[in-house]
């Protein structure tokens, strides 16, 4: 897909980078003049996806997360990819409150929030391992 604007960066899967990841996407999206509410939606969705890679995909042991964002017209396109352990049953993982880590106080609401705050959410297996989370949001401004 040809974007009007695009970036791609690789992040170490450390939780200190969550703030950076959501911040950089929010700054990138600023050319679309999003409302504060739209910026918050984007930041939350990015934070959920990146946190999932760090905590679930790489089980807090580190690894590389690829964060990409593109702008096409007034649509923001975000992809968060990792090569972690991935998810066996993606359909089940998308259900509200589903978590494999309830003893560690994870709510299981990450994908539900991504789905609610963005206009589209697609979760698929990465090759050779891991997860790709692809989201879009139409910025009305």
């Amino acid at each position: 897909m040809a974007f009007d604007n695009y970036f791609k960066l690789t992040l170490e899967a450390k939780n200190v980078n969550e703030s950076f990841a959501r911040g950089v996407v929010a700054l990138f999206a600023s050319e679309l003049k999003p409302t504060i509410s739209e910026i918050n939606d984007i930041k939350t969705a990015v934070s959920e996806a990146v946190t999932n890679s760090i905590v679930h995909g790489y089980e807090n042991k580190g690894g590389e997360i690829v964060l990409e964002a593109g702008i096409s017209g007034n649509t923001l396109d975000i992809t968060v990819s990792d090569n972690g352990i991935g998810i066996g049953d993606i359909d089940m993982a998308l259900q509200p409150f589903f978590t494999t880590k309830s003893e560690e106080e994870h709510s299981g609401m990450g994908f539900t929030l991504m789905d609610s705050f963005m206009n589209s959410l697609e979760v698929k297996k990465n090759t050779p391992s891991g997860l790709v989370v692809h989201m879009t949001k139409v910025i009305k401004g």
Binding site: T51, S107, M109, G110
Partner: peptide, 13 residues
């Protein structure tokens, strides 16, 4: 100023 679903897990805990 910001919270994601991690906050929900913390509160439930």
């Amino acid at each position: 100023s910001f919270m994601d679903s991690t906050g929900i897990g913390v509160l439930l805990g």
